[in-house]
Simulated scan of single mutants.
Amino acid sequence: MRYLNDEELQLASRFLFLSMAMVVIQQDIQNIRHGTFKIKEPYIDLLEKMNTEAANERRKLRKTMQDKKIRVVTLNKNDSFSSYLFLCRGREEKRNYFNPAIRKKVETIIQELMQKALLPYQQYDSANT
């Protein structure tokens, strides 16, 4: 049974998956820095811009969640599923996510962040053609 409304659930879910995307981006930055890439800087710059975009969005989400008294708590994780508890003004809702579905959501967020980070370059290219 659903105890959180759509807006509350959407807000908490976005915060959760955006946080996961930030972890992936930070790990990728470290992997590139310590990897065998010949030219690392463009990749690191892009990932750092993506991380900044994500941090700014997450900061706004966190503020909104504090105002609405919404929290997300990790319950358990195993090879197939991860469980989270969404809390809002005394109401709680437990949600189980299939790990490949989480991966797909995080990948979608990373693609959104990449588009935002590349937008200034795309505008520059279209102005010069």
Rank of each mutant, 00 (worst) to 15 (best):
residue 3 Y to H: 13
residue 129 T to Y: 11
residue 83 S to Y: 14
residue 52 T to Q: 15
residue 91 R to M: 07
residue 35 G to R: 03
residue 127 A to I: 10
residue 17 F to Y: 09
residue 63 K to H: 08
residue 107 E to M: 08
residue 24 V to L: 06
residue 104 K to A: 13
residue 94 K to A: 08
residue 65 M to L: 04
residue 47 L to G: 00
residue 18 L to T: 15
residue 122 Q to K: 15
residue 18 L to E: 14
residue 13 S to M: 11
residue 22 M to P: 04
residue 83 S to N: 14
residue 84 Y to W: 13
residue 39 I to F: 09
residue 16 L to S: 03
residue 104 K to R: 15
residue 55 A to C: 03
residue 18 L to R: 15
residue 126 S to T: 10
residue 113 L to G: 05
residue 42 P to F: 03
residue 21 A to N: 04
residue 19 S to K: 12
residue 58 R to K: 10
residue 99 N to T: 10
residue 118 L to C: 04
residue 30 Q to E: 15
residue 127 A to P: 00
residue 57 E to I: 08
residue 53 E to F: 11
residue 64 T to P: 01
residue 98 F to D: 08
residue 69 K to Q: 14
residue 42 P to L: 06
residue 82 S to W: 09
residue 111 Q to Y: 11
residue 66 Q to Y: 05
residue 78 N to T: 03
residue 99 N to C: 07
residue 69 K to N: 13
residue 4 L to F: 04
residue 15 F to P: 06
residue 35 G to H: 01
residue 15 F to Q: 12
residue 60 K to F: 00
residue 36 T to G: 06
residue 73 V to N: 10
residue 39 I to C: 02
residue 97 Y to K: 06
residue 53 E to V: 08
residue 116 K to V: 05
residue 43 Y to I: 00
residue 17 F to M: 07
residue 40 K to W: 02
residue 104 K to H: 14
residue 52 T to Y: 12
residue 14 R to H: 11
residue 93 E to H: 07
residue 11 L to Y: 04
residue 43 Y to T: 00
residue 104 K to V: 08
residue 104 K to Q: 14
residue 35 G to T: 01
residue 42 P to E: 04
residue 126 S to P: 01
residue 111 Q to W: 10
residue 104 K to P: 04
residue 72 V to G: 00
residue 42 P to A: 02
residue 7 E to S: 09
residue 129 T to K: 12
residue 88 C to K: 12
residue 36 T to H: 10
residue 70 I to S: 05
residue 71 R to I: 00
residue 112 E to F: 06
residue 29 I to A: 02
residue 40 K to T: 01
residue 24 V to P: 00
residue 77 K to D: 08
residue 93 E to Y: 06
residue 60 K to D: 10
residue 71 R to E: 11
residue 70 I to P: 02
residue 63 K to M: 09
residue 75 L to D: 14
residue 19 S to T: 15
residue 7 E to I: 08
residue 33 R to W: 00
residue 5 N to Y: 09
residue 40 K to E: 02
residue 28 D to I: 05
residue 31 N to K: 12
residue 123 Q to Y: 08
residue 129 T to M: 12
residue 62 R to A: 10
residue 1 M to C: 09
residue 102 I to K: 03
residue 64 T to K: 14
residue 25 I to G: 00
residue 92 E to D: 07
residue 75 L to E: 14
residue 56 N to S: 12
residue 69 K to C: 07
residue 5 N to I: 06
residue 79 D to C: 10
residue 122 Q to I: 13
residue 64 T to V: 04
residue 61 L to G: 04
residue 65 M to W: 00
residue 99 N to V: 13
residue 106 V to A: 03
residue 78 N to Q: 01
residue 37 F to A: 15
residue 116 K to I: 07
residue 85 L to D: 07
residue 115 Q to G: 01
residue 68 K to G: 02
residue 99 N to I: 14
residue 77 K to T: 11
residue 115 Q to T: 08
residue 19 S to W: 06
